[in-house]
Amino acid sequence: MFGISPLGWVHTLGSLPAIPVAAYMFARHGRIVPRSKPGTVYFVTMLIGAVTAFAVAREPVGNAIAAVTLLTLLAGYGAGRLPSPGRSGRYVETICLSLTAFFLMVRTVTETLRRVPDGHPLVTDPHAPLLIGAQGSLLVALVVGVTAQIIFLRRQTRSTPAAAGGV
């Protein structure tokens, strides 16, 4: 079904929970909160998706996105654990983890449009206007979202100096 191999299903079903978990954290906290139960679920499912992507990617760009996602995921989860000057660790953490959600959604939207409906996908050309528009919309959402997150973090740390270290 949909031309997906058994390993492809492991990749898809393993990383799929990251989408609603990220949506929940964005809605609830305005960002992905790594040191929380949903943050742990997000990390594990993103790790499954990024690692298995190397085995299922058909194009070099898939491997590149998987590598960048993996590095960004590790940087995002590691940034809050390292001693950093001031609040920069929290900014790096927030930006990196937002980028991982963006990479996940770009691949999800792209693969969905190129596979659904089964046998007659909505998009057959990687340069199709529908696909480019969807990816462009995700990029706009990333820029607006990260900008809002940075503004929120700045306001939060200005109003409460102790907030820089907590969730």
Rank of each mutant, 00 (worst) to 15 (best):
W9N: 04
S36N: 06
A22D: 04
G165K: 12
R158I: 08
L142H: 10
R114K: 15
L82E: 03
F54H: 10
P85L: 04
G166K: 13
L73D: 02
G165S: 10
A163G: 05
H29M: 00
G80H: 07
S5V: 14
L122R: 13
T45H: 00
L70W: 06
A75F: 08
S84W: 04
V146D: 01
P121W: 05
R35S: 09
F54L: 07
H11Q: 04
T94P: 05
A128C: 12
F2G: 01
E93R: 11
T147D: 03
P85V: 14
A164Q: 07
R107K: 15
A75L: 13
T40N: 09
G62N: 03
T45M: 04
V61S: 10
V10L: 09
A101G: 10
P6N: 08
A66I: 09
S159E: 10
V68W: 03
F103K: 04
T147M: 07
G145D: 00
P85F: 10
L122A: 14
Q135V: 15
Y42N: 00
I65G: 06
I95W: 04
G165M: 08
T147A: 12
H29D: 09
M25S: 00
V92E: 00
L13E: 02
V41L: 01
R114D: 06
T108D: 01
L74Q: 05
R81N: 05
R158N: 10
P17A: 00
T72A: 05
L74H: 04
H11F: 08
A55W: 12
T100S: 05
I132F: 11
